[in-house]
Design a protein around this nucleic acid. Structure first.
Lengths: 152, 152
DNA sequence: TTTATGGTTCTTCAGTTGCGGAACTAAAAA
DNA sequence: TTTTTAGTTCCGCAACTGAAGAACCATAAA
C-alpha cells in the first residue's frame, strides 16, 4: 500500500500535526490521506495501512471530519465510505489560526483597561502589542485577498 | 493582592494560554504577571495569589522562563527573585508562530515530490497550498518590518 | 556554628488520554 | 430469515501529566 518513503512521510506529517495538538492516530490518518496515491481510502485500507484498531480508526476519522480536515464520499451500490483529505481547506485553517491570534488584542486591551496607570513602560509595551495585533488583524486579510486575486 | 476583576482576567488569560498548549499553572502565572499592578512579583507572592504549592510555582516559573515568556531580576542585598513578564517578546512569539506555520510548505513540497502524477487535481491543491505558504512566508516578514518602521 | 530564607527536587497520586478488544447496530445481501 | 458488511460504542488498561507535599539544598543572617 505504501512505499517505505511514503511511510516515513506519514510519520513526519504525523509529528507535524501532533505538534499542533492533534493525537497520534488523527495525525497519521491525515498524513496518510495526503501521501497515499489513492486519494480516496476506505476505512479498512486506512486501518490496515496504519495498523490501527477499528475503534481507533473510527474515532480518528470522526475527529478529523469534525475538525473539517477530512470528509467521506459514498458511491452508488457500495456501502463503504471513501475518506479523503480536505486539502483545499488547509489554507483557510492556517489563516484562521493567524486571525485567532490577532484577536487576542481584545484580551490585552481589557488587561490594559484594568491596569494601574503607574506602570507606564509596562503599559506601553502592552499597548504596542495591542497595536501590533490589530495591525496584523487588518493586514492579514488584505494579504489573503491579494493572494486570491493573484491566483485567479 | 488582586481584585475580583483581576482574578477573572487571570483566569481568562489562563484559558487563552491553555488553548495554546500551556499547562494551567504556567498559564495563570503568565496571566498574573500581566495583570498584577506590581510588575515584579516574588515567588511567594505568586504562590499565595494563585494558591499554588511551592513545587508547582517553581516548575511553572521555570517553564515560563524557558519559554522566554518570563524572567527574573534580583536586587542588591535581597535574596528574593523578582519575576516579571517578558511582554515585549509576545510580538516576536506571535510572528515566530506564524513563520513556523509557513515553513510547513517544505513538508508539503516533499509530499508533492513523492506523489503519483496521476492525481492532478489533488496535486494542484497541494501545490496551491505550498505557493500560499511560501507567499505568506515572504510577505509576513515584510509586514513586520513595515510595522516596525511605522512605530519608530 | 546554627538558623532562617528562598527555592528546587523527589515521590506520590489523581485525573486524563489514546488505544485495543469485544460487543453492538444498521443496512444490505443471501 | 439469517448472514455479512461497515462501521460505532463501551469498557478497560497502560502511559502520561500536572500538581501537592515533603525532603532537600545553598546562601545569608544571627
Amino acid at each position: 500500500m505504501l512505499s517505505d518513503e511514503q511511510k516515513l512521510l506519514v510519520e513526519k506529517i504525523g509529528l507535524m500535526l501532533e505538534s499542533e495538538g492533534l493525537s497520534p492516530a488523527v495525525s497519521r490518518v491525515l498524513g496518510l490521506l495526503l501521501v497515499s496515491d489513492k486519494v480516496e481510502l476506505t476505512f479498512d485500507e486506512i486501518r490496515e495501512t496504519l495498523n490501527l484498531s477499528k475503534s481507533a480508526t473510527s474515532n480518528a476519522l470522526n475527529i478529523a471530519i469534525k475538525l473539517n480536515r477530512a470528509e467521506y464520499i459514498t458511491k452508488p451500490g457500495d456501502r463503504k465510505r471513501y475518506f479523503k483529505s480536505k486539502i483545499e481547506l488547509w489554507r483557510e485553517h492556517v489563516m484562521d489560526g493567524f486571525c485567532k491570534k490577532c484577536s487576542w488584542s481584545k484580551m490585552f486591551e481589557e488587561v490594559l483597561k484594568h491596569r494601574t496607570k503607574e506602570t507606564k513602560d509596562f503599559n506601553k509595551a502592552i499597548k504596542d502589542l495591542v497595536n501590533f495585533l490589530e495591525y496584523m488583524g487588518k493586514e492579514l486579510p488584505k494579504l489573503y485577498k491579494e493572494w486570491e486575486s493573484k491566483t485567479k
